[in-house]
Design a protein around this nucleic acid. Structure first.
Lengths: 251, 251
DNA sequence: CGCTCATTTGACAGAAATCAAAAGCGGTGG
DNA sequence: CCACCGCTTTTGATTTCTGTCAAATGAGCG
């Protein structure tokens, strides 16, 4: 065991040990030795709302995890139209391993802290620790299902269903977070994690339509508008029905 | 070396050696030993147009490769609306590794031959051969980019752009196949690999709109309608522009 | 308080879905 | 070889959802 590692083992100064997403992120699949290597190559970096982490077409030089805040993954067309293809939250992995260029832009949707490392370094660690690569595979397969799910949403569902689905997502995320923290989940108030523009684009609609459908849901007493960012879900069951997936694929 | 393996090595009777997609499919990343194990667990199976390979919500028991024909990956909503989230062609991998249930249905879009094996057996082989699992990871990452690409297409592009993009895809596929076969690529006639209904759903539109836009392209002399399934691409450059991605991400 | 930016509301237009019917294609059998 | 049948594709007419544009209202902040 190298002296440096031994010292860490004794003093417990590895920054990863204090990481708030450590037990949920990709790196949870890493053993002490692997975490040590990741720890060596990675560092935290702060981004302000709107900052570009990676630009489409550029070298895919970085990968990493969201520690706090939110990222949007986007594609912009030549004439300016653009589409949010993904939103990433704490513990989510970002970046494109095993490709030279990124097909999408990655930007901070809010003030965000990332744990980043060079893609090449990351790939080397993956090659050395199959368990880590396996975890990445499993997460990527899940991501693939998620995107396909959203393809269905965007492809053949109404704007009301899209908005209802988004609220269901927020509710699920919250429920999941409470479960992790072993907190009994009581609060039915959800908060928009990113701006309206991003949500609208994520759902392939406009801020205007988004606004109308939110008020539609409020009129139907499915939710109550607390303020611009917060909503109390009054009727989760009805919300699920309006999302058009009632009784389907629980989980 | 077990006797059976030795015998195979001498006589060359392994069915995988004669497989027409062997050098393009996932298994190309497998060494002789791994191919041997895959060979032991897998078998070819024929499906007729419309046959269900896997049903959404059911046990994800099978995985495998398309050998010939085409599969469609779909999701059906409670009220009958449904969406093709993917089309799979020879050498493409299908099935959901590392999950108990499949979130999507997989059906034969044409008469199709698959090389199938039990998911569990496949997972065991993956665990034993990291190179194979790595190949699956790389392919899954590519798939993810593809679906995101289509999310952009469906989310913020016009029907004409969708149809043009589909023709570009067909052209690319053909060019790629010619390259593999070392055949100089001259023929500008592309053929619909699946029925109109599937193509329309894949592009999130209707057969009616699809028909109108094809004729739009014909009127603009971008292509010539040979017959119901075949089209001669007269102006590939213009097609690319109409697809709304000119000059973007060559590859 | 006034500035800017985000959100809401209203009026309107347009692209594409829907509905309906005609035409074309492919297979079967007389 | 031609007539018939079922299916797919095309064409036409109509509707509707939702995006666009414009203006008003509201929130946040120095």
């Amino acid at each position: 065991m190298p002296a440096k590692t031994a010292l860490r083992a004794i003093t417990g100064t590895r920054k990863c040990d204090r990481c708030i997403v450590h037990h949920r992120a990709l790196c949870r699949a890493a053993d002490a030795e692997a975490v040590d290597r990741l720890n060596r190559y990675s560092h935290l970096k702060h981004y302000r709302t709107g900052d570009v982490v990676m630009h489409e077409g550029d070298d895919a030089r970085l990968v990493g995890n969201v520690v706090s805040g939110a990222l949007r993954v986007t594609r912009t067309l030549v004439d300016g139209r653009h589409q949010v293809v993904g939103l990433l939250f704490p513990s989510d992995f970002f970046g494109r391993a095993f490709a030279d260029t990124s097909s999408f832009s990655v930007e901070a949707a809010t003030d965000t802290t990332l744990c980043i490392l060079e893609r090449k370094a990351f790939e080397n660690v993956l090659a050395a620790y199959p368990a880590l690569e396996h975890e990445l595979l499993v997460r990527t397969l899940d991501d693939l299902d998620d995107v396909r799910e959203r393809l269905v949403l965007v492809g053949c569902q109404t704007t009301l269903e899209k908005v209802a689905t988004f609220f269901v997502m927020l509710l699920d995320r919250q429920r999941h977070e409470c479960a992790m923290a072993l907190v009994p989940w009581a609060d039915r108030v959800v908060t928009f994690p990113v701006g309206r523009q991003d949500i609208a684009s994520y759902l392939s609609t406009t801020v205007e339509s988004l606004s109308r459908q939110i008020h539609q849901l409020a009129d139907r007493r499915v939710l109550r508008i607390v303020d611009n960012r917060r909503f109390e879900i009054l009727d989760p069951a009805r919300l699920l029905v309006l999302a058009g997936r009632s009784g389907q694929h629980p989980g």
